[in-house]
Structure formats: C-alpha cells, structure tokens
Design a protein around this nucleic acid. Structure first.
Ligand code: FES
Ligand code: FES
Lengths: 163, 163
DNA sequence: ACTTAACCCAGTAAGTTAGTCAACTATTAC
DNA sequence: GTAATAGTTGACTAACTTACTGGGTTAAGT
C-alpha cells in the first residue's frame, strides 16, 4: 500500500470541485490557490482524472473543470485509483508468486488488508464527505481566505500597471 | 500510508521466527534462505525489531533470534510500527495543520482511514496467522525447499574441499 | 486579435527503498 | 587459546518515486 500526497491532493481537489462546480466550471488556478497545491502538479493529476472519466475540462475563458456525473456516484477509491496509487499491499499484485511459482508466507494477510481498505474507500463518496459539517466549515474558511488573497493579488496588479 | 517491502519483510520474518523458534533460536541466515530476503537487509530490520523489544538475539554458535514473549501478544501493527512504516495517511501526522494553522479539507478522512487500518492490524497477532492452514502449508513447503538447498550447499562445500 | 485556461511534454531536486560491504564483538566448541 | 559462529554496527550506493517547475500548444470566448 502506498497512499501519498498524490492521492491526498487528488481527493482534496475533487472535493473542492464538488463543492464549487455546481453552477459553472472551476479553474485549476482557483483550486491551487484554495488548497495550496502547485498548479502544474494539479494539471498532471487532472490529466489522469480526465482519462478516468471522473472530470471533464472546458477550455477558454469561463472554462475549467467540472465533475463527470453526480457526487453520489464518485467514490474515494475511484479517485485514488485514477491517479495511480496502489491500495494493494502485496508484492505480487495478487499473482501469488513472490517465491518463484509459489505464494509467500504473508500473501493472504496483505490481500485481506488490501480488500479491507479498498471496500472502506469504495463505500465513501464525495457526496458523503460534502455532507459533513467539518468539511463545510473548512471549505467556507478557505473561500474567505482565497477571496482575500485575490484582492491582494488584484491590488498588486493595479500597483503594477500604475508604475 | 506507506506499507512497502520493509513492513512485508518484517512481518514475514517474524512469522517465520514464530514458526521455527519454539525450541531454539533461529539464525537470520536460515530466514534469509527460506524467505528469500537479503541477509544484510534482514540484519537492519532485526536491529529495529530488537530495539522495539519484539525479539531477542543470542550470539555465538547455536545462537540466533527468538521472540520476546508469546506469539499471542505480538500484533502485526507492532511489527510494522517497529520497522518505521507509517500507517497514518495524513500529511500533518495528526496535527491538523496542513494549511498554516488550519486543517485541510480531507484531514478527517485520512485520520479515519488510518484509525481503521491501525485497529485492523492491531487485532491480528502472529499466533492468529500461525493458526491458519494456508500458512502452515506454505511454511512446510519452504522447509523442504530450504532443506534441499542446504544439501546442495553442503554438496558444493564437499566438492570444494576435495579439490 | 487577444485573452483565458485547458492540455501536453520534458526535465529535475529531494527523498526513499532495498541492498551491499566491511569491520567489530560476544559466545561456543575444539 | 584459537577458531568458528552469529549478532551488531555504520557507511555507502544504485534505482526509483515523488512533487514540482517551465515552456510551449490548442481550443474557446470577447
Ligand atoms: S505478496 Fe503475494 S505471494 Fe507474496
Ligand atoms: S492531513 Fe491533517 S491537516 Fe491535512
């Protein structure tokens, strides 16, 4: 098993998307600002999410990304799998061939653990997370903070053009 | 979360130890042969396991390692923790401070997942694994195969001394 | 035309993993 | 005592992955 920032970022970004893309697409620039994730790195992750048909991109002004389908139908397991994180803990990848042709001593243990985690993440959807109070609170705080930084950014731009 | 060969090897070796060290200590050389793990790498892992008081080493001929205490009291979670694998999936390590002073959007999700996996691995002991039929079968197959390779090894030694 | 923002590709610093090599110490057997 | 055994320690390394940067292209809106 290997669940790193890649998977964390992917789920975080998808949750941000679910929260903000009700009306119109959300730009990666906004997500990067709110969640403090590198824009270029987000692009890479969304390339995978798009290939997995979890999001769709719209180009040009007013464009951005929005969810493919309903938040109730997107599980955390799907997102994590889409960006290429292995939930499986085995060395053999389920082939039961660690020792030449035979399984190793602990093959079954890791298989069971993997199944366990997988089913846990499959049962949680974006909608489930979105319904939590804590998530709502954090998202709203982020919106306010992002609004401030945008104002600061615009102010800086203004000063720049005045020079 | 990050569960790699390090944790797999550690648990596999401990299980091998639980299976073979009923009467006398087991050498790392034997474990390395049976489980096809690099001897030097095993030494590093057992240094950590010893520091965590999970095994004790006996030097000299007839020496080797044996379990500290009963197999019923050693959980998989302890072994994995002893070699330094993080079961926790959060970025913050439970501090809830991904975003400067605040928690990130998905903090709770990763905390819950970590707790879930941790309690799963805490409930499984070496004795539990040892009781399984599959594990017994694999261990016996490994014993036979190791016996063969030892004979081949002795044969090679014999030929060598005759030259 | 010009701007916006998705899309695409190449590269890279830092860190981790899995492993090797070499030296040293304690214990037992002869 | 001395030789063999087996644990103990530390430094060092190739290969790989992660997280990230930069530069460029393409499609869409105004
Ligand atoms: S993990 Fe599947 S055979 Fe070892
Ligand atoms: S994972 Fe804990 S705050 Fe982000």
């Amino acid at each position: 098993m290997r669940l790193t920032s890649k998977g964390r970022y992917a789920v975080t970004a998808m949750l941000d998307l679910a929260f903000h893309s009700q009306l119109k697409p959300v730009t990666l620039i906004d997500i990067a600002a709110r969640q403090t994730i590198s824009l270029s790195y987000l692009e890479q992750l969304f390339a995978r999410l798009r290939r997995a048909n979890l999001v769709k991109g719209v180009r040009g002004p007013g464009g951005g990304y929005s969810l493919c389908g309903d938040a109730h139908n997107i599980s955390i397991a799907e997102i994590v799998a889409a960006v290429g994180e292995r939930i499986d803990s085995t060395k053999c990848g389920g082939e039961a061939n660690c020792q030449k042709t035979h399984e190793c001593l602990t093959h079954d243990l890791w298989m069971d653990l993997g199944d366990h985690v997988k089913s846990y993440l499959e049962k949680i959807t974006l909608a489930d997370l979105l319904a939590k109070n804590r998530v709502q609170e954090v998202a709203e705080r982020q919106d306010q903070h992002a609004q401030q930084t945008i104002e600061i950014h615009n102010h800086a731009d203004l000063m720049h053009t005045l020079q």
